[in-house]
Nucleic acid binder design. Structure first.
Lengths: 338, 338
DNA sequence: CTGAAAGCGCTTACAG
DNA sequence: CTGAAAGCGCTTACAG
C-alpha cells in the first residue's frame, strides 16, 4: 500500500493539514515544518493522489480533448499546440475519442456528465444547433476548434474563404474546368469549402458542374486519406474532357493525388489544404491553416474561461492563406500569380 | 450545482446504495428500482462523477500514455492502435508529455506517484537500467513500447535487425559506400540501428567510416524531421566521392531527403524506416514497423497485467520487414532483390 | 433486493 | 503558523 497523507503526517510529527499545505504551496507553513514534510515524503515516495485531491478541491487541473479521429494530421498538429500551452500552465491532458459507430450526441453528453475535466476542447466535432444548445445546460467550459456556434468560444478557419482562394487562383490563370477533390459531405469543413468553390465559380461566371466534385471510394476518416485522394484523382484523370486543374480538400489527399498522377502519367496543377509539415517537402501548393496556433490559442482561451466563467464569448476566425509551391506548375512552366 | 447521488436517491425514493448499484450494473437491483433511478438520472442529467468513483472504488479505468513527443508520426500510429484497444475495453486515455527540458526520471516518477491511472504505457522512453529498476518499486502496471527492460512487459521492434536488413540490401546490390542518414544518438533506436548497419558492413567485409553516418543540423524531435533529413541529405550529396546509396533512420527524414535530391538534381537510392502511411504514396522503400499493432498489443498486454499482477513478464519483439518500392531504383532501372 | 454506515485520501474554512 | 473536523461524492461489505 502506498503511503497516504496520514502516514506522512505521523512520521513528520505534524497534522495532515500541514502536509496538505506543503503540497499546495500554501504560504502559511513554517520552513521547518515544510522541510520535514518534504523530506519524509521523498523518503516514502509520497505525492498527493490526484483523484482524492480532485474530489476534495473540486478541481483537477485537467483539460479533455474530444475528437472524432485521433490519427489524423490536422488533429496531430492542433494537439501539439494544445499540449504546448497545457504543459506551460501545468494542466493534465485527457483525450476522448468519439466513436463513429455510436450516437455522437450521447457520447458527448456522457463525457460532460462524468465531469472528468474542468474544461473541454472539442476538435472537429460538428453538431446541429439544437444539440450544441443542449450542451450549454451543463455549464461547463467548452471551446470549439474547427467549428463554430455562438454559444461557445470557438477557434476556426474560414473554410469557404480558403476554398474560394484556391479556386480563384486557378480561374485567374484562365482554367475553366477546375475539379474539387472532395471528401464526405457530412463533414462541415467540406460543405463550407464547397461553398467557397462555388463562390469563385460564380465570380468568374462559370457554371457549377457537380461532376467536377469527386471523392474516392474509401471513406474511412471521412475520406481524408491518401488512398481516397488517390482514387479520386484517378477518376478525375479519366474524365473527358479532363479537368485542367484540381483543388484538394486536404494535403493528405493531395499526396495520394500526386501519386495517382505519377502512376497515370498525366499531370494537372493541384492545390492542397492544411499545409501540414510535409507539404513543403512535397512541393505542394496549399491553403495554410495555422493548426498549431489554433490549438495553442484555443487552449489559452479555454483556460481563461475556466478562470472566469463570465467573460464574453469570443469567436476567433483565422484567414487561410494560399501558399504557392511547385504543384501548381505544369511542365516546368513558371507559375505566375496575378 | 450538478446533481449528486443524493439528489437522485431522494427523488427516486431509494437509497444512494441502490443508485450506485444501478450505475455499476449490479445484478442485485429490482427492475422497478432500476427503471425509476435511470429515469430520474436522465431527467436530471446525472451520471456518477469520475473522481468520486475513482477514489471510492480505488480504480479509475484509466490508462496513461507517457511520451516524449506528441506530434510525431510514429507516436501517432502507435496511439491509434492504443486508442482502438482502449475504446474496445472502455478505458479512458490520458497523455503525459515528458518535457525534454526537465529531468526525465523526476517527471516519470512524479507521474507514477500521483496515481492518475491504473496502468501506464511508456512510449519511446529510454532510461538507464538503474532508473527502470527504481520504477519497479511503485508496483504499478507499466508496459514499455519501443524500449526493452527485463523488469517490465515490453513491445518493441528489433532495430538492429531492421537497419541490418536495409544496409544488407544495398551491399548485396554491390554498393560499397552506403550512407546512414541518422538522428540524435541519445535515441536508443538510433544506437541500435547503428549496430545493425555496422553488422551488415562487417558481414560484407566493408570498413566502418564514421563520415558516412550523417545527421542534419536541426535537432528538434531528436532530428526525426523532414528538415533534418533534408539537411543531412544535402551534406551527403556534396561528399566526395558521393555515397552510392543511403539508409534513412525514419520515413519522415526520407521525405526531406527526397526533396533534397530533387533540389540538388542528384539521386541515389534510399530506404526509409517505419513505413508510415505516406511511404507507399511516396514510393518510398522502407523498413516496416507494425506501429498500430504494437500499440494495440501493448495495450492489451497492459490491461491483462492490470487484471492479474502476477502474470509472467513478457517481452514481445517484432521483426521489421523490408518493403521495396521505387526509391531504391535508379534511373528507372528495374530493381532486383537478390 | 435494499439500506445504514464506514471509508476512500484529500482540502479548507474555522478557531486558536 | 497549526490542528481538529467537516465535507467532497461515491463504493461496498454487512446485516437484514
Amino acid at each position: 500500500m502506498p503511503a497516504t497523507i496520514y502516514d506522512i503526517a505521523k512520521k513528520a510529527g505534524v497534522s495532515i493539514a500541514t502536509v496538505s499545505r506543503v503540497f499546495n504551496n500554501s504560504a502559511n507553513v513554517s520552513d521547518k515544518a515544510k522541510k520535514k514534510v518534504l523530506a519524509v515524503a521523498d523518503e516514502m515516495g509520497y505525492h498527493p493522489q490526484a483523484f482524492a485531491q480532485g474530489l476534495a478541491s473540486r478541481k483537477n487541473n485537467t483539460v479533455m480533448v474530444v475528437v472524432p479521429v485521433i490519427s489524423n494530421y490536422f488533429f496531430m498538429e492542433v494537439l501539439s499546440g494544445i499540449q504546448d500551452k497545457l504543459s506551460e500552465l501545468n494542466y493534465e491532458l485527457s483525450i476522448f475519442n468519439i466513436s463513429p459507430n455510436k450516437d455522437v450526441q450521447e457520447q458527448v453528453e456522457h463525457v460532460l456528465k462524468r465531469r472528468w475535466a474542468e474544461g473541454y476542447l472539442f476538435i472537429s466535432i460538428h453538431l446541429e444547433e439544437e444539440n450544441w444548445k443542449k450542451l450549454q445546460k451543463y455549464k461547463v467550459p467548452i471551446t470549439l476548434v474547427d467549428e463554430h456556434y455562438q454559444g461557445f468560444d470557438s477557434v476556426s478557419v474560414d473554410n469557404a474563404q480558403g476554398a474560394y482562394r484556391a479556386a480563384k487562383y486557378f480561374f485567374k490563370k484562365g482554367y475553366k474546368r477546375v475539379a474539387m477533390l472532395s471528401a464526405l459531405e457530412t463533414s462541415k469543413p467540406i460543405r463550407d469549402r464547397l461553398i467557397g468553390y462555388k463562390k469563385a465559380l460564380e465570380e468568374f461566371d462559370l457554371p457549377y458542374d457537380s461532376q467536377l466534385v469527386v471523392t474516392g471510394d474509401s471513406m474511412n476518416r471521412d475520406g481524408f486519406t491518401e488512398r481516397a485522394g488517390y482514387e479520386a484523382m484517378m477518376k478525375i484523370l479519366s474524365m473527358e474532357p479532363m479537368p485542367e486543374a484540381c483543388f484538394c480538400a486536404s494535403d493528405i489527399q493531395a499526396v495520394g493525388a500526386l501519386k495517382a498522377m505519377e502512376d497515370a502519367g498525366k499531370k494537372i496543377p493541384i492545390i492542397g489544404y492544411d499545409d501540414i509539415e510535409l507539404a513543403e517537402y512535397m512541393g505542394l501548393s496549399t491553403i495554410r491553416q495555422p493548426m498549431r496556433d489554433m490549438g495553442f490559442f484555443a487552449t489559452q482561451n479555454l483556460i481563461d474561461r475556466m478562470n472566469n466563467k463570465d467573460k464574453a464569448i469570443s469567436q476567433t476566425i483565422y484567414s487561410p492563406e494560399l501558399t504557392i509551391r511547385t504543384s501548381t506548375k505544369v511542365n516546368g512552366k513558371a507559375d505566375i500569380l496575378s
